[in-house]
Design a protein around this nucleic acid. Structure first.
Lengths: 123, 123
DNA sequence: TATAGTGTAATAGCAAAATATAACACTAGG
DNA sequence: CCTAGTGTTATATTTTGCTATTACACTATA
């Protein structure tokens, strides 16, 4: 996996799996790869993976069944809420950062539009 | 200072000072507070502050004069470029994150607009 | 020229994150 | 019942960031 050395790996793993759940790569009720397999997949240690999983279990986003595996929650409402939360968190961060750089609300929106436009052309 | 325990303090200090330079709180050529004072200001250790400064010195955003102090670069072009870079980095991150959550280009823009709107009402 | 204020660097110690490794608890299937 | 595959936990070790402390190098100025 491609880790950002500025933030804890367990945290990045957590985010990575959350993304898979939200995008439907991992469906509600579906079994996750085993912790050992996940460790191989993301090139990290079992304990590190377990730490990420533990937080997700505490958040009730995945359910752990000893001897059987870890499973994505069946509660689609929870998944939707997670998505909203992640999106909002992202928006909050950009907004605050750009605002702190003295960009007005309008400038923030237009700069994003320009960025997307440029990105499209870059292909 | 209000540190995010998920990212290194020296990195947050760096960002903090960059913000002050870009917003003009620290003007081109202006002397920064002494490392010892900065350490007090941000409630961190001198060495941690020094680490942040070292990176900025390497980036030639500030100039170090032994015995006199640290000074913001006089090169306003560099400052402008820094602002562009920071803004772009932020935009890149949101875009990629939200895109990874399966939001379309339009949805990304409108969700930002909605966020800003809501934020205005929250006051 | 002494002194106070600067940046810089080194040392030692602590804590958190991550690793390697091993062991334990449970489940399913032959 | 045994075994392979699962989650869980524990220990020791390494690395990194951060701190505390001290010392050194340089500058300005009284």
């Amino acid at each position: 996996m491609n880790f950002d050395d500025k933030v804890p790996i367990y945290y990045q793993i957590e985010n990575y799996i959350y993304h898979e759940i939200i995008t439907g790569t991992l469906k509600p009720g579906e079994k996750l790869p085993s912790v050992r397999q996940l460790a191989v997949d993301v090139t990290a240690n079992v304990n590190t993976v377990q730490r990420a999983l533990s937080e997700m279990i505490a958040a009730e986003m995945i359910e752990s069944k000893r001897g059987r595996g870890n499973f994505v929650t069946m509660d689609t409402t929870k998944i939707d809420q997670l998505k909203v939360k992640l999106v909002t968190t992202q928006l909050e961060r950009v907004y605050e950062q750009l605002h702190a750089l003295n960009l007005s609300d309008e400038e923030i929106v237009t700069s994003l539009q320009h960025y997307i436009q440029q990105r499209g052309q870059a292909k």
